[in-house]
Design a binder for these strands. Structure first.
Lengths: 111, 111
DNA sequence: CTGTATCGCTACGTTTTACGTAGCGCAAGC
DNA sequence: GCTTGCGCTACGTAAAACGTAGCGATACAG
């Protein structure tokens, strides 16, 4: 359903492209602490339609990031969990800056 | 132009939502090693239309991740650069697994 | 002052993507 | 043999992104 070349050559660009489609990051995030069934995933990502959820899951499986298992449901693979670690870093970044928008620069040291 | 609540409450979810729109991650990535003008950004992200590019840039500016400066163009702020670090981690993850799809698991902890 | 070039950005009609709801085939429990 | 839950598909509709053209501003040449 989606094996056309996306739009990149550099490995990072392909990933950026995949992760940049709607719900993909969110799905990965929801899977972070344990496997979930298709329908559980659906209700966690409140507005996702089964069509896209399935597309994302298929793509993620193609890339060996998630697997579907008979009892548990969908879960992260080894490399999927590594990606999850990165999302954890993203989460703490998000928490650090929560609420503040363009106000100040605070930390990070300008240049 | 875009200050409606997206679809989340948890800070990470808002970020996941923003980063999960098309081109956002790519824009951040292209900005990683120095400022770029609107048009330079446009040609780096080969198919992006000025409409969306502007929307993304506006949102990113609202969140204090990028700024627009008179001479240089668009550039990452302090918190933007922190986000850039996370993208670097993503890049090395991507390189580590480049090419391999669902085939083998190779390294990392299996499942 | 006119011409050219670049800048950030907007308008607008078209294509692509995602949505929402309904439902299929399947297996398990009662 | 009914209901419940599973992964997943169909299909018409709404929203997001596209592609192209062009605006007002600034800059620099002739």
């Amino acid at each position: 359903m989606n094996r056309k070349p996306l739009r990149s050559s550099h490995p990072i660009n392909e990933i950026l492209d995949i992760l940049g489609t709607r719900w993909t990051l969110r799905i990965l995030w929801e899977l972070r602490d344990g496997p979930l069934s298709f329908r559980a995933l659906q209700s966690r990502c409140e507005r996702v339609s089964p069509t896209v959820l399935n597309q994302r899951l298929a793509l993620l499986r193609e890339h060996g990031v998630v697997t579907l298992e008979s009892p548990g449901g969908y879960r992260l693979t080894g490399r999927g969990r590594e990606l999850g670690e990165i999302l954890m870093a993203l989460s703490s970044w998000a928490k650090r800056w929560a609420g503040e928008r363009g106000s100040g620069r605070g930390a990070g040291g300008a240049d």
